[in-house]
Every structure is written in structure tokens, then in C-alpha cells.
Amino acid sequence: MNRPLFIIFSTIALDAIGIGLIFPILPSLLRDITHSTHIAMYIGILSSLYAAMQFIFSPVLGVLSDKFGRRPILLLSLAGSAFNYVFLAYSHNLLLLLIGRVIAGMTSANMSVASAYLVDISKPDQRAKYFGLMSAVFGAGFIIGPILGGILGEYWLRLPFIIAALLAGLNFVVAYLALPESKTSIPPKDSATSLNPFKVFSSLRSISSVFPLIATFFIFSATGEAYAVCWALWGHATFQWNGFGVGLSLATFGLCQMLVQAFIPQHASKRFGDRNTVLIGIACSCIALSIMAVAQQGWVIFAIMPIFALGSIGTPSLQALASQKVSPEQQGQFQGIIASTISLASMFAPLLFSSLYFQFQSAWPGAIWLSVVLIYILSLPIVLRSIKPSLATSK
């Protein structure tokens, strides 16, 4: 692995650790701030606010990275993340916490830039592998982050924010010292309107057959938000997990997903084809979610983690196909469109799933996972169109 690739993966891993530290403590933090036990809606609001900022700033950062280079935009976002974690550590009311999530959404909208960086330094036939590795190192960060957050939160509820700030600072130093610029071409002389996230989406009209792919990214992201919103609440209600239990379960999933993303996507695509790989992933997700809905003992969840993690094997192939739709000069903008689409789903899905969980929690908390299965089933025609053979056979 060359040095730029190693550094960008290290940056993604450190970023994931910082994010993962927060998940196990968020329910307790909200109970402490709001003095309420009904905090599912607050989690949904915070998640949607965070996603709204990412929707706005993902294409903006992508376009800026096309204009000025990937490296300075990544450094700017990392510095902002470090500042934000310090801010959150001293946020003692709901308003400050909401402001912190706004800043977090702005500064962490850098996956579009990281994705464009990978496209810059890789050949088309390597991209499914590299996008899989990017997801794998992100999963590796979740092995460390949630379990550390659960442990540290037992000592002091705000200690994970301090550690996250230190990790973000370390992330910045590593990138500043060792990450070279990947973009060598002359930036296009676009008008300032390209920084408008809504205007950026109009460029999709000139890209053939891309709408089904974008819709598939939207669907996958929307279903993924159910885990972020409901996992800790469901684990506590069903299995009486504390912060450590939630962190351990998320870390186990991170380990399984890391192994799956690192070793399986490229081989699955070659053996089954991109189309069938995506369908196999959806089937694995639906099987795991159905088991989770009826499980009454925590060990069952850990036992099905490998099946659950296999649900993500099709995403790298979708990312690789999408990257081939535009020229190198537009990669930052296009990756920003994808990231913004994902964020758009994340704006609405947390409110949907938090509302559904609020309805289910007293009678059957696990029913929330059957709602995710239903969404997969209803959206299957769109997914099938996005991975039809004419696209899936493009390597």
C-alpha cells in the first residue's frame, strides 16, 4: 500500500473512532440535559440536524476540493472537528448541544473529499476494492470507538468528547505532516453558484443512468439510520444493556463489518457479479433484522453479527460504478452529490424511525427492525433498476 493510501485510510479510521466514542453515551447525556426519560425524539432531532448540515456542506466541500485541492479541505474539516468536540464537552443545555451538532455536521462532511481522493489515486478496476477497504477501516474505528465511549462514559459522561477532540487533533497532525495533495489538474473555472447544494444536483441531468444509483444510496442510507437512532434504546429496553453493553455490541458489529469489507466485496463481485452481490447483501440484512426483531437474549445478537455485516457487501461496487460516471475534474463535486444524497436520507430517516420506535417501545421494541425489512422489500424495484446488467457489468 502506498503512503497516500495508508494516510487517507488512517485519517478515516481516526475519524470513525472519534464519532464512535459518542454513540453509547448519547442517551444518558440527553437524559442528563433534558431531565426526561423519553429521549427517542431528541435523538431523532439531533441526528436529522447533523444530517441537514452534511446535506448542505458535502457538495460544498466537494466542489471546494475540486477548486483548491483535497488536502486543504480535509485539513480544514479536521481542525473544525477537534474544535467541535471541545465545544460539546462543555455544552450543558439542549441549545448548546444542538449548536454543537450543527458544527459537527459542517466539519464532518468530508467523506466526499476522502472518496474523491481515493478516486484520484486509483485506477477504475481498483475502486471497488479501495472503497471496500475504506468502509473496512471505518468499521475498524468502530471497534475501538464505541467500546471506549462506553467505558469512559462510566467514569465521566463528557470524557468521550475530550478523547474525541484529542483524536481529531491527532488526525489533523497526521494529515498535515504526511498527506500529499492528490489533485494535480488545473481547477475548473466554475461559477460561484456551484457551491449551492441544490444547484449542484441539477448537474445530474447530464449524467446518463445515474438516478437509480443515487436512489439506491438514498435507500441504503435511510435504512442505516435506524441503527444509529434505535440501537442503544432497543438494547437497553430488550436486554438491559448499559453503556458498555451497547458499546460492545457496536464494536462487535464494527469488527465483523471490517472483515467483510476488507476481504469479501471484490471476490463476491467477481464470483456473483455486482447485481447479485447487492441482492445477497440485502437478503443478509433482512435475515439478521428479522432475527433481531424477535430475539429475547443478548447473545443471539452477537451470534448473528457476521450475517448482519454481510449486508454491506454491495455498497463498494455501487460506489465504484458511480465514480466512473464523471470526469476526474468533477469527482469532488459528484462524490459530494452522493454524500449529500446520503445526508438527505439521514435528515428524514431519524425522525421516521424515532417516531416509529416511540410507538413500538412499550409493546414490542424489536418491531422497529421489521419496519426496516419492509422498506427493503418495498424499494426492491428501484434497487433492481440501479443494478441492472448494463450497469453491473461495467467494470
Rank of each mutant, 00 (worst) to 15 (best):
G247F: 06
E225T: 14
Q361H: 13
G247Q: 00
L96S: 14
F358N: 12
I151Y: 12
A322G: 10
F142A: 04
A175L: 05
A228N: 15
A303K: 06
A52P: 07
P72V: 08
P160S: 01
F87K: 06
V63S: 04
I214H: 00
G44C: 04
A303L: 12
G245C: 03
A13P: 00
G281I: 00
S386A: 11
L95R: 11
I387H: 06
L170C: 13
H35W: 13
K183Q: 13
K123C: 01
I151L: 12
P350G: 00
S394Y: 12
V137S: 07
I56E: 01
I282N: 07
F211Q: 14
L259W: 01
V119M: 00
A237P: 10
I121M: 14
S47P: 00
S327K: 14
L321C: 05
S221V: 06
F198I: 12
A40S: 10
F57T: 02
G311Q: 06
Y176V: 11
P328G: 06
I301T: 10
P124S: 10
L166G: 01
G314F: 08
F244V: 14
V210A: 08
N110K: 08
I368N: 07
V246Y: 05
K129S: 12
W241H: 14
T315L: 12
L279W: 02
M1W: 11
A303T: 05
L26P: 06
Q333L: 09
L26S: 10
I301V: 10
P365Y: 04
V174I: 15
F358D: 14
H38R: 15
S208N: 13
F83L: 14
A293E: 07
A349Q: 02
L96A: 11
I186C: 06
L76R: 10
W234K: 13
I287C: 08
L88K: 06
S185A: 12
S390E: 15
L380P: 03
G235H: 02
T193V: 14
S390D: 13
I33C: 05
Q240C: 09
L250I: 09
G235R: 01
L21D: 12
F253N: 12
L170K: 14
L289K: 00
P187L: 03
L88D: 01
F6E: 02
A128E: 13
I219L: 02
L170P: 09
D120H: 05
L96Q: 11
F9G: 01
S285I: 07
L96T: 12
W369K: 09
D66H: 05
H35L: 15
A349W: 00
M41H: 11
N276R: 11
S208E: 13
